[in-house]
């Protein structure tokens, strides 16, 4: 019984992080078929922005997180102007942008490593937002307050995002561009602004996801890479461009990973979800969660 609770507790935490990392990827893919390989380094940067604002600039922690989120968003705009802006008309944009953002992401990661050596002298570093291991018991399993905050934050951010996409005029414009970008332009939607906005949005959420991850382990320059790959696996499982599907897929993958980690061994978590996804793709190549809600087929 207690390992059952244990799986749910740690699975929900994985799911929360994967969901935040994946919904942004879905929005960006939906808007203009871009897969951003610099997504991982932006997650890492999210965690470091908290560190920088809190430790170096002395900002109170309660402000450091939202400020870090905004900085993450700015990094998304930076990625747009450093890569996609110049390439959007290329014939094989779908492919070339992956290579270009892979290069950009690697350059940013290596630059960050170099910069950190100057700024913090040592890494990894403890995440100042981490609340440590304070916890209460559920059916004999300790559940830390940290996890409660992560679940709550992920839920609130996703609800805000859903409301933004459904109820605001610009949110509708984002969905319109994903469903038919030419038609959206004929309605007067400035598609370029939508591209920048979705990248910024995705990067802000990725930053939060990175903060969450670092609050468990520590802030480390290479921490985003694996998280990004898992977010990719989530959107592949859901079918690219499927927003609600990505949420379900994040939940499923988080649970599967937690099950394998609790019942078998830590290091087989990634292998298990990858095999699951490959089998799922052989079974249903368009993703397992049916029709898309945001993007073209």
């Amino acid at each position: 019984m207690d390992f059952f609770v244990q799986i749910i507790v740690s699975g929900l935490t994985f799911s929360a992080m994967y969901a935040l990392a994946a919904v942004g990827l879905v929005l960006v893919w939906g808007a203009f078929n871009m897969l951003n390989m610099a997504h991982g380094i932006i997650m890492t940067l999210g965690a470091y922005f908290v560190l920088m604002w809190a430790e170096l600039a002395g900002l109170p922690l309660i402000l450091a997180a939202p400020v870090a989120m905004i900085c993450g968003g700015l990094m998304g705009a930076f990625v747009y102007f450093a890569s996609a802006h110049w390439m959007i008309k290329q014939r094989d944009f779908e492919t070339t942008i992956i290579i270009a953002t892979f290069g950009l992401g690697m350059a940013m990661e290596a630059g960050l490593l170099k910069l950190l050596a100057e700024l913090f002298h040592s890494s990894p570093y403890a995440q100042p937002l981490s609340m440590g291991a304070d916890s209460f018991l559920v059916a004999g399993v300790p559940v830390s307050y940290q996890r409660i905050i992560i679940w709550g934050a992920a839920l609130i951010l996703i609800l805000i995002l859903a409301a933004f996409l459904k109820r605001t005029s610009f949110g509708r414009a984002i969905r319109a561009v994903a469903q038919n970008s030419d038609a959206a332009r004929l309605m007067g939607v400035r598609v370029r602004n939508v591209y920048i906005a979705v990248l910024a949005l995705a990067s802000a959420l990725a930053g939060v996801s990175g903060i969450m991850l670092s609050s468990f382990k520590e802030v480390h320059p290479l921490m985003g890479g694996a998280l990004m790959l898992k977010a990719f696996i989530v959107i592949v499982l859901a079918g690219l461009g499927n927003l609600t599907g990505a949420l379900y897929a994040a939940l499923l993958i988080g649970m599967v990973e937690a099950t394998v980690k609790v019942l078998i061994a830590d290091q087989y978590g990634f292998t298990a979800i990858l095999i699951l996804v490959i089998l799922a793709l052989i079974w249903k190549p368009a993703g397992i969660f049916g029709r898309s809600t945001v993007a073209r087929q």
Binding site: A82, S83, M87, T96, I97, I99, A100, T101, F102, G103, L104, G105, M106, A107, M108, E109, A110, G111, K114
Partner: peptide, 12 residues
């Protein structure tokens, strides 16, 4: 890796 990354980006 900074240099290589930027070279890849610029070529693309």
């Amino acid at each position: 890796n900074v240099g290589l990354g930027i070279v890849v980006l610029l070529f693309m």
